[in-house]
Amino acid sequence: MTDDDPQTADRIRPAVELNNAFVALASSMRRRVLLGVLERSPREERTLSEELAAGRDVERNRVRAQLRHVHLPKLVVTGYVEWNESTGEITRGPAFDELVPLLRVLDGHAEHLPGAWP
């Protein structure tokens, strides 16, 4: 088999998608964003920032800067969320539904996970 072989591409694609899911879930802030969007879409960036800051006892402006410059761009690239930078609206992206089963399993078994969830 070569890299151009469709069978190879079919086997690589699910692994890449699963890796994207784990990268997206690697940050507790991104997990909270994804769970927030799962709960309700669309979400407002400002409101979400306030919720995240209150949950972590961190200044809202710092959380919002992290969202804008780190976490939301990563989630947009994976297709899990869409984000309108002008309005601050965050919605489910085209790949969000692929992540839902994993989010629900992890959230439903939070007490069995190492560390803190989300």
Rank of each mutant, 00 (worst) to 15 (best):
T2H: 09
D5F: 08
D5N: 15
T8V: 15
T8S: 11
A9G: 01
D10S: 13
I12F: 07
L18S: 05
N19L: 13
F22A: 05
V23A: 12
A24Q: 06
L25M: 11
A26N: 15
A26V: 00
M29Q: 13
M29T: 14
R32S: 13
V33N: 02
L34S: 05
L35Q: 05
L38E: 09
L38M: 11
R40G: 09
S41M: 08
S41R: 06
R43M: 05
E44T: 03
E44R: 15
T47S: 14
T47R: 14
E50M: 05
E50W: 00
E50Q: 12
E51M: 07
G55I: 00
V58T: 14
V58A: 13
E59T: 09
E59V: 13
V63G: 10
R64I: 02
R64E: 12
A65H: 10
R68C: 02
R68I: 01
V70P: 06
P73T: 08
K74P: 01
K74V: 05
T78I: 00
G79E: 07
G79P: 09
Y80S: 05
E82Q: 14
W83I: 00
S86G: 09
T87Y: 00
T87P: 06
G88R: 10
E89T: 14
G93Q: 07
F96E: 01
F96Y: 08
D97E: 15
E98W: 01
E98A: 14
P101M: 11
L103F: 04
L103A: 02
L103E: 00
D107L: 08
G108K: 07
L113Y: 03
G115E: 01
P118M: 09
P118G: 02
